[in-house]
Amino acid sequence: MKIFSAKYDSKMQRISGRHLGFFSILLALIFILGACGHVTTRKTGDNSAGIPKKDSVKTGAIDRGGNTAIKDKVSINFTQHKTLLDLILLLPDDAFSSWEWKPEDRLKWYNEIKANNFYSDATTKFSKQKYFEPDRAGFMIVDGIWSINLYHATDGSTIVITDDHVGDGHTLNFYEVRSNKLKEYKEGESMLSGFRETLKKTDPVEHCSEKFDELEDLIFEYDFSKNDKIEIESSWYLVQESYGNCLNGNAIQYRFNPQTKKFDIEKIYWKPKQRE
């Protein structure tokens, strides 16, 4: 019996030793797995790892007037552009001859800018702003561009010219605004010295009646890009080689005179043209 007991005790010691070794390994694995699973959560906004932060709002392009388009919002500083914004409200409906911008829609647009210094593209359903500066603005419309241009006189009044350019034609409207009251010039082109007559030579060396008649139907382009100047030029086929004996040029450059509230001719010249 003693021999059996000794063998049994020896066997149990070997089994216990094996179990102790197994449990030690198991505990070590549990400890390692627990340590790996313990991850410290970084607070939102913590940039301690040096990861660059992304802007929350994507900024769009900036136009010459310093106005920034952000998604569907167009930024306009109300204070800086108040004069132009006020004048757009004053315009009669016929200033928008090829499209419709009703007074109530303009007022909604105006109030949105006044309150927020921006407006939503959805506010102007049929147009898209091309540029907006203190004295000039342009909007892309369905099949052309509509623009408004301001010229300030010394007596405190403002000359306003709108250009509704659709297809190959231009519809110009001329107004004078003073003390928030608008007066329309029915013969507005007289402010531009009757440019068609100005282009004609008074003593041509050949018979020019047919070429003079062409001026009445000729398409002219208007450049309002400079604040105090307007340039008018003819279409591509009016070139010096063919019309030099009858005309003084194919382009006229005007400068606004704030004393007389007229546009004085700076120069008449032949502008190079490329045949289309």
Results as ranks from 00 to 15, higher is better:
2 K>W: 11
2 K>M: 07
4 F>C: 09
9 D>K: 15
11 K>C: 14
16 S>I: 15
19 H>M: 14
30 I>Q: 13
38 H>A: 03
38 H>R: 06
41 T>S: 04
42 R>G: 06
43 K>L: 06
48 S>T: 09
54 K>P: 01
56 S>K: 11
57 V>Q: 02
62 I>M: 02
64 R>H: 09
67 N>T: 08
74 V>K: 10
79 T>K: 15
81 H>V: 05
83 T>L: 00
89 L>N: 15
91 L>T: 01
96 F>R: 01
103 P>D: 00
106 R>K: 15
106 R>E: 07
117 N>A: 04
118 F>V: 12
119 Y>C: 02
119 Y>K: 02
127 S>G: 13
129 Q>D: 02
129 Q>G: 10
135 D>V: 13
135 D>P: 08
142 V>F: 14
146 W>C: 03
156 G>C: 11
157 S>L: 09
158 T>E: 00
160 V>T: 06
168 D>K: 07
171 T>Y: 05
172 L>N: 05
172 L>C: 05
178 R>T: 09
184 E>L: 10
185 Y>F: 08
187 E>W: 01
192 L>N: 08
193 S>K: 15
201 K>S: 02
206 E>I: 14
206 E>H: 00
213 D>W: 00
226 K>G: 04
234 S>G: 11
237 Y>C: 02
247 L>H: 03
255 R>Y: 04
260 T>H: 05
261 K>F: 00
272 P>I: 01
276 E>A: 10
